[in-house]
Design a protein around this nucleic acid. Sequence first.
DNA 1: ACCTGAACACCGTTCAAGT
DNA 2: ACCTGAACACCGTTCAAGT
Lengths: 245, 245
Amino acid sequence: MAQQTDPARRAPLSRDRVLRAAVALADGTGIEALSMRRLAQELGVVPMALYKHVANKEELLDGMVDAVVGGIRPPDLGPDWRGAVRGRILAAREALRSHPWASQVIRSRSGPTPALLAHMDAVIGAFRTGGFSVDLTHHAMHALGSRILGFTQEVFDAPPGAAPGAAAGPPAAEQAAAFRQLAERYPHVTELAGATAHDDDSVVGRGCDDQFEFEFALDLLLDGFERLRQQGWTSSPSPAGGRAG
Amino acid sequence: MAQQTDPARRAPLSRDRVLRAAVALADGTGIEALSMRRLAQELGVVPMALYKHVANKEELLDGMVDAVVGGIRPPDLGPDWRGAVRGRILAAREALRSHPWASQVIRSRSGPTPALLAHMDAVIGAFRTGGFSVDLTHHAMHALGSRILGFTQEVFDAPPGAAPGAAAGPPAAEQAAAFRQLAERYPHVTELAGATAHDDDSVVGRGCDDQFEFEFALDLLLDGFERLRQQGWTSSPSPAGGRAG
DNA sequence: ACCTGAACACCGTTCAAGT
DNA sequence: ACCTGAACACCGTTCAAGT
C-alpha cells in the first residue's frame, strides 16, 4: 500500500541527503543518539557507505551546522545599526529554535563553517556601518559571544529538576523535607525560585520566559555598546599609546 | 629508590581519592580522555572498583564539578553590591581557570551541585542586599548566565585555526590563496581579525586578552543592572498589573 | 574501481561466578 | 558479603576481501 511513503529510500545517497537525514535524526531523537551506525540504518545503508560523502563524523557535524546556520533569514533591515544587529541576532535565534542540539554542536566545532562566517561578517558589517570603530566592534563581538547566534549559555543546559543526588520520583514526604532543607541552606535561591515558579510544579524553576530573558540581556548589551560608541570609547588609554601588557 | 613517589597508590580507594584522580586526569589529558576504564587504570584498580564510590559516570562528573566549584575563594567583600558580585564572579573564574574542562562539564549536568547552589545563593544575596528587587535580580541572573561562574560562551570553544574543510598544515602558497578568498568573501571578519591578530601567526585570531574581554562584558552588564535598579525598573508595566502572556 | 563485511580498539555497565 | 573477570551492547573507523 503505502510503499511510497519514503520515496527517497531508494534514491542514491548524496551528501545533501546524508546531512538532511542527520539533522532530522538529531531533531527527533537528540544529538546523543546520532551515531554513524544509527544514521546509516535510518538511511537503509551500510555504515561505511556514509564515508563516501563525509570524511568522518566531525565533517558530518560541520555539515549539519552549516545547513542550520545557512537557514538564517534576516528580516528587511533598516539603516540603524541597532535594528540591524538586533534583527540578525533574533533571526539566528529563530533559525536555531527547532534544533536544540545546534548550539551544543556549534560550540564543539573547532572552526567556523562558511554560513557561520557569513552571519558573523554581516553582524560585524552592521556595527561598522553604524559608526563603530574596529576596536569597539571587536570587544562588542566578544561581549555578545554565542549570543550572536541567538543562544546564551545558562548555567545548565537542561531545566533544573531535583537535586543531583536524588533519584527520579522520590516520595512526596521526602520531597517536602528536601525542599525545607534546600530553603534553609540556600534562602536566596529559594526566594528567587519561589517568586518565578509558582505557575509550575517544579521546585527550582521554569516558568521563565526564555525569549524575554534573551532580549532583556541583549538590549542591555546593545545599550551599553551605544553608550560607548557615543563616548568615542577606546580600549587604549590614548589614541597614540600602546596597550599595557 | 623513589618508591614512595605515589604514596596513595596502595591506600584504600575512597570517593575523595577517586574524584581527585579524575580531576587530575581531566586536567592533564582532557575531559574526552576521561573514561571509567582509564581512570581505574590510573588508580591501579579494576574498573568495577570505582562503582563502589560513584554510582556511575554521571555521578563522577557531578563530584568533579563540586570539587572544583567548592574551591571558589571569594575575597573580602565590601558592602556595595557591585564589588561583591564582581568579586565573587572573578573568584569563580579564578577557581575554574586551571580546569578547562569544567565549564563544559557543568553545562552538561542536569542540575546544580551543592557547591554550585552555595555560589549562586551568595551572588543572589549580594544583589538583594544591594537593594535589588526579586524581579530584577531574577533577570540579572539570567542575563549573566554562565558568566556567574566566570566563563562565557564564545562561539567556539577552541581557538579558530584553519577553515573547517582544510586539513592541518596546508602548503604556504595554498594558504595565501585561501586567505585572499577569505578576505574577499568575509571582508568585515578579515578586517577585525587583521586588526587584533597582528602579533600572532594565526590567520583568524587569538591575540585577544580573554580576561579583558570578560571584564569588559561583565562591567557592561553590571552598569546596566545598576541603571535599572536606580530607575526602579520592573518587568511588569505597572506594580499592580500582571504580565501579559 | 568500487563497495562492504569483518575486525580493531575502544566505551559504560550488567551480571554471575569466585573468594 | 564482598570483589572482579567476562560479557553485553554499543561506538568510530580501518582494512582487506569480494565483486
